[in-house]
Design a protein around this nucleic acid. Sequence first.
DNA 1: GTCATTGCAAACGCTTTGCATCTGT
DNA 2: ACAGATGCAAAGCGTTTGCAATGAC
Lengths: 135, 135
Amino acid sequence: MTSADGTVVRRSTRQRALVRELVGELDSLASAQEIHAQLRARGETVGLSTVYRTLQTLSEDAEIDSVRNEAGEVLYRQCSPQHHHHLVCRSCGRTVELTGPAVERWAHAAAEEHGFTDVSHTVEIFGLCAECSTA
Amino acid sequence: MTSADGTVVRRSTRQRALVRELVGELDSLASAQEIHAQLRARGETVGLSTVYRTLQTLSEDAEIDSVRNEAGEVLYRQCSPQHHHHLVCRSCGRTVELTGPAVERWAHAAAEEHGFTDVSHTVEIFGLCAECSTA
DNA sequence: GTCATTGCAAACGCTTTGCATCTGT
DNA sequence: ACAGATGCAAAGCGTTTGCAATGAC
């Protein structure tokens, strides 16, 4: 349901707190399955579907970011509130946040030039980080 | 296997020709399933797995481009040989090719600055095209 | 007490693969 | 004839969902 101001009501449960906490500690993008595995590794008992559902709602509520990797998996991470993009290591998942006003401008200019409205864009850079390059 | 110069050998079959032809006629991105459906609609008999495999090899051979949409499906389209990006209409699927040397430079510079190697990037702009905006 | 949330197992949708057959070379 | 290509059905894989039980409010 939704409360008076239109905000969706979310109950605070043990599972939700666990997922939020773990995502907050991440220093790289992680899939729902990895997050679930890490929680279980800590001895916590959380259902996989609960992790999926929680990550979805957290993402909807803009508490966390989600991107799709080249393999089609959805990866999550808690990020800075401002708009930005990611530099992602294909091997270890480490991420670096990038802000690129130039890219934003380019995207909007290109879109408007072709009469497009309601523009959004995706920019992801994948590569091997320094560590994974040498390993 | 591979021929002397390392190029992968591809036999020219009826199915391969059909897929290549249909993709060549596309004016928007299409999934393997859509391509398969269109071929069948024309009365052609091609197996779905053959379409998948053919699109993969065409993509490997750089004859066609592939991108993953927000739903996680892989979409294909025949494109100009040079590196470029897409401006895609969320409503009708129409695409416009964009070349943005500035973006390429930005992506590579950002990656190298952080010690990343073997860099690739994805830049997709989604919006509503002029027609779909007014409709 | 209500109703969101949970957890399991089953279902889903896209894609890949095993394997016997077919076919380009 | 050899080895790639095909097509079917089955498997894979990440993700979603139905449903009864649980727990937050």
